[in-house]
Design a protein around this nucleic acid. Structure first.
Lengths: 105, 105
DNA sequence: AATATACATAAATGTTTTTACATATCTAAA
DNA sequence: TTTAGATATGTAAAAACATTTATGTATATT
């Protein structure tokens, strides 16, 4: 099949959906969504602070944070010994609202 | 530790987050998010129709649909030989908008 | 320079998901 | 009551993820 304007449009749509799925998978984990939640409230926190809040083991949390950063959900800035994490785009917080807004859940 | 009002409030919050993670995981797959997308547009479709649109193998699609139904995302109604699927709660479509609204992705 | 703190990375292991393939069930029609 | 069409289910192999434990690296402090 040859590309038509329509099929190109469809492919772009598809890419967006793929991307959405990719991000959603990255968010669909209790620890990771808690990170989003807390960074939604606190603007930025270092790893130890997040660890305290969530009570997760250090290496495990580090894995989750790295994953989220790799996937473009979080960003970091070092400050001395500490590394501060924050949301790359704060509109992602809407996801939590969106889910909680669904009556069916 | 004994429950205080605060800890109860926290636990409810935590449950919401858990629930959100659960739903997001259920949605975080290319095929499944495409199903949501298409049912957002078409209101209801039978399995063969969805299959045509998405080009996924029958049994595999069926598994995904069953999963989504079990998790409260979709509902079904039989009509003769066909089974029609639709969104349990159409506000779930906002998730797609939400993701696509994030500049960072 | 030695030590402590904060965080990341690597490797091993366990768990869950995804997919494929085979087969079963339900319904309508012949 | 057989057959065909539509969809579901069982199961096993493969792939992806999550977790743990151990170790590494960067930075600051002594």
């Amino acid at each position: 099949m040859v590309d038509t304007e329509e099929s190109i449009a469809l492919r772009i749509e598809t890419e967006k959906l793929q991307r959405a799925a990719y991000v959603l998978k990255a968010v669909g984990h209790p620890t990771r969504i808690s990170v989003i939640d807390i960074l939604g409230q606190c603007e930025r926190l270092n790893v130890s602070q997040i660890q305290e809040y969530l009570g997760v083991e250090q290496a495990l949390l580090s894995h989750h944070l790295t994953t989220m950063r790799d996937k473009g959900i979080l960003k970091t800035e070092r400050e001395g010994k500490n590394i501060y994490y924050s949301l790359m785009d704060r509109t992602i917080m809407n996801i939590i609202q969106c889910i909680n807004g669904c009556k069916s859940f």
